[in-house]
């Protein structure tokens, strides 16, 4: 199985949900000190407390960028409690490539960041008139 599968390379070269949300309900930035990766995840919760928008930004290798991009798609519609429950296996399954021990942190950096952003998120209050 190829590490740099077409899907991974496609998400890396044309990332989905890449960008910044100016007024997020929750945001978090995490570093991977080993390789210098830095990922920020911004979430918007709707009135019911479900994620209505998720974006990521920062720098990283193809694996961490693609994994985070794919993950942001999965976050839509989930509650923070559901996001907290996403386990590592789910990420490996989503990526569908062989993750060696050295690349575990790359694969999971987005998930760690998204979970922290979810914990910090509070439902968006209706805009004041």
């Amino acid at each position: 199985m190829e590490l740099y599968s077409e899907i991974i390379l496609d998400y890396f070269k044309n990332p989905v949900n890449k960008g910044i949300i100016t007024e997020p309900s929750g945001t978090c930035t995490e570093h991977n000190p080993l390789c210098g990766d830095k990922i920020r995840v911004d979430l918007v919760l709707d009135k019911k407390g479900n994620v209505s928008e998720a974006k990521f930004s920062g720098e990283g290798c193809a694996i961490s960028q693609a994994a985070t991009s794919m993950l942001t798609e999965k976050l839509i519609g989930k509650t923070p409690a559901q996001i907290k429950k996403i386990d590592n296996e789910e990420i490996y399954k989503m990526l569908n490539i062989p993750i060696s021990p050295g690349r575990v942190k790359c694969a999971l950096l987005g998930l760690v960041t998204a979970k922290k952003a979810a914990i910090l998120a509070s439902p968006r209050k209706p805009a004041k008139k």
Binding site: L3, Y4, C35, E59, C61, A62, C106
Partner: peptide, 13 residues
């Protein structure tokens, strides 16, 4: 545009 981790990975291949 290419992260050094990815470079090292392909070199290792």
């Amino acid at each position: 545009g290419i992260h050094p981790h990815d470079i090292a990975q392909i070199f290792n291949d």
